[in-house]
Nucleic acid binder design. Structure first.
Lengths: 237, 237
DNA sequence: GCGGTTAGTTGAACGTGTTCAAATTCAGCT
DNA sequence: AGCTGAATTTGAACACGTTCAACTAACCGC
């Protein structure tokens, strides 16, 4: 029941090696050809292992994406933390993190779509909403907590507590937009970020107004209810 | 380029018959066994046609879902319109339509997940956001326009114009929740509807306050930008 | 060393979505 | 009736994700 880090622990050093060899190879072909067009056979062949061996380490093709997503997040954190150091305002900090997110994802745009395709499916292991123990989601929310921690804005406690999660949901929305964004260099996504961050900043200040307290309370209660309802079936067979 | 109603026109009366026979059969097995567990072979066999024949009328298994979604919407409209007749307030009207939506979808809960699984994929023909000519989406937004038309609430023109679309997006969100909702009879979804409708009602009134005009304008400009960016590739081969 | 247990690896086989060239039906025309 | 071309129908073949029984390699206690 507790959150365990890995799906299937490799027991040997050699096993680790093989596993990451397969993952590297898979990501390489994904980047070149996209997800659908990459066959498990091609991955296995290029990695120099048997087809069955790939399935020994990754329960399905989808699980390769989860590994990819993990890696992407690590990279995002790695570039975000230094960039945040000299930023004070909530707006600047959020803007920084959001922009860097998509800088990081850039090379994978064409096959990132599949992430949502599978992620939205309730029974998919990649579903970002269910599976309480999903480490990537937790870590991602954690990053938004950092964004907020570092600012001096006067935000009520109740809102402050939910804000990391809310920003994470917001970021999922922008990712969804980005996936569909056909504009060159995804300029539209960046413009959308600029505008939404500006708006969010204003909304947060508005919501922090004592005048807004009842409505804010009601909204937050709702958010909490939704959060509770979602993480359920962590089937972790 | 113009919105054409059907993907692939059947040219004969007999063709129409075969097509709907296949669809009926498919929906029946879907309801019994779920989407993933239903094979095209099983559909063809039960319908008494060949495998290839099913593909003559439905380009892929996914297209069967689109047809299902169309039918579901028709049914929803059919029960919604009469129910709206004796309701005046925006809140009551919205509540009615939302509840009926999920009453209608109830029998299909277990296989509705696949809708989102594929719908979120940018290249999927089911993607509810792209494909300008998608008749189901248009019709669905139209229903929310009806919800608003029938009320006397004083809503500014600019907001009134975007509200049908915004409510449609809201409804998509609730559907997403419902798909994941494991509570018996999906009570949680209904509770969520009650709460969110209440909140939306308040928000709409708040946004209609002259005091809120600048923020409202900014938000609506943003919504418009997002809407413009999305519908793109209607590949209609 | 040896037996035994566990980890890792193999590739054939299966089920399923999809394609396609060929066969069949059918309506309209001469 | 016979012809023609389009609409419809067929089923074999293909490609791919996934499974699994069997095999090999590595390690551990004796």
């Amino acid at each position: 029941m507790a959150a365990m880090r890995k799906k299937k622990a490799t027991k040997t050093q050699k096993g680790d090696q093989t596993k990451s060899l397969i993952l590297e190879t898979a990501l390489e072909i994904f980047r070149e050809r996209g997800y659908e067009e990459t066959t498990m056979r091609a991955i296995a062949e290029k990695a120099g292992v048997s087809l069955g061996n790939a399935y020994y380490y990754f329960r399905s093709k989808e699980y390769l994406i989860q590994a990819f997503y993990q890696r992407l997040h690590d990279e995002h954190v790695a570039v975000s933390l230094p960039a945040l150091e000299n930023k004070d305002s909530l707006k600047a900090r959020l803007l920084t993190v959001m922009r860097l997110k998509f800088d990081t994802m850039e090379p994978y745009h064409q096959f990132a779509g599949v992430l949502f395709k599978t992620a939205a499916h309730p029974e998919s292991p990649l579903n970002p909403f269910s599976d309480e123990s999903d480490p990537v989601r937790e870590a991602s929310i954690e990053l938004f907590a950092r964004v907020i921690e570092g600012t001096k804005a006067r935000i009520p406690k109740d809102l402050r507590a939910e804000l990391p999660y809310l920003l994470w949901v917001y970021h999922v929305g922008i990712v969804l937009f980005w996936i569909h964004d056909p504009s060159p260099k995804h300029r539209r996504t960046y413009r959308l970020i600029d505008h939404t961050v500006d708006l969010l900043d204003k909304l947060i200040h508005l919501a922090s107004n004592p005048f807004m307290r009842p409505l804010r309370k009601q909204t937050l209660r709702l958010v909490e209810e939704i959060r509770e309802a979602l993480p359920d079936e962590s089937e972790e067979k």
